[in-house]
Amino acid sequence: MLVDSCIDPDSKRPASLTYLDRLNVNPAHVKAIIASHWHDDHVRGISQISERYKSAEFFISSIFNDPEAASFLAAYSGSSAPGQARGTKELFDVVKQRDAVFPVQQRSTIFERTLAGRQVRATALSPVPAAVWQSIAHMASYLPGPQGGTPIKHATELAPNIEAVVIHIDFGDDAILLGADLEDHQVHGWSAVVADSWCKDRRPSTAYKVAHHGSRTGDTDQIWTVLLAPDPVACLTPFNRGKHRLPTEDDRTRIRARARQSYISSNATRKPDLPTDQLKRLNDIGRNFSQVNSGFGSVRLRKKRGATRWMVECFGRAQRL
């Protein structure tokens, strides 16, 4: 099962393709691909993954199972305004190339099968129904009128992120939680997830992909007390957009206090990688220039059947938080 996608800067291919190829995984063994949401940093290259693993089922957030949301995806697919299409183009291409895709929301089953005698079940904990409607309303605001003539606008991301698909995978004797980019909100976000009786009953997870790059807005106490087992292994990816850099030092401290084993997929420098004269000229007219993607790495968690601890390995720029 593959969740989201990013491009390996060395191979220029989706990182998960490179990884599975190195392991000689038979493409037919990939059963499910999930796009947690449409933001560029989560779906780069996912249409290539979809193309490669044709027999896998493809899941997207149920916010797109709506006429206005589908129009949004079509309008920003790149055929009309190429400069305004990024993640939306990836998802559009996936849906176009497939016979069927499966929208998921809170309580949807993504994968359910008995593997090596154990019942394995992957389910979605979000988006919650109220968030679906909020997200559709946001996307509808970027749709032009039926007669045309309105300016093409850049579709900004809805904040807080309430549309992302959080995934819980139950292995029969253990579970992991993939937090995507879901942020907290009393009605639409994490608080609504942990308040749901069905979500509360999921097996507590011993490994957690920390939501929203470790930000304070993607966190709430109940994630750790309701959905996670005590002292889980926590992994996260950084985010860097100008002065907005995640995780902050406060975020790191907060996460380490919750999970003694915490890892980040890249802890590389964010210093600008520019010739001196270019950087100087940029600093003449602005400030805080930094690389968006300054390093690449991955954290691998493995656990043998019956083992009590996760085996953690860091590759590339990945390291302890």
């Binding site: 149920s62 797109f64 199972n65 006429p67 589908a70 129009s71 995806l73 079509a74 309008a75 697919s77 055929s79 009309s80 559009f92 849906v95 176009k96 497939r98 016979d99 069927a100 895709v101 499966f102 929208p103 998921v104 929301q105 809170q106 309580r107 949807s108 089953t109 389910t123 032009p144 039926p146 007669q147 045309g148 069905w198």
Partner: peptide, 22 residues
């Protein structure tokens, strides 16, 4: 462009196959 968007949106929607909620 709007006509194309409408056509593409119909194509996208026709491929959404919702599964039952648990």
């Amino acid at each position: 462009q709007m006509a194309q968007v409408e056509q593409d949106a119909c194509m996208l929607l026709s491929k959404m196959k919702a599964k039952p909620i648990a």
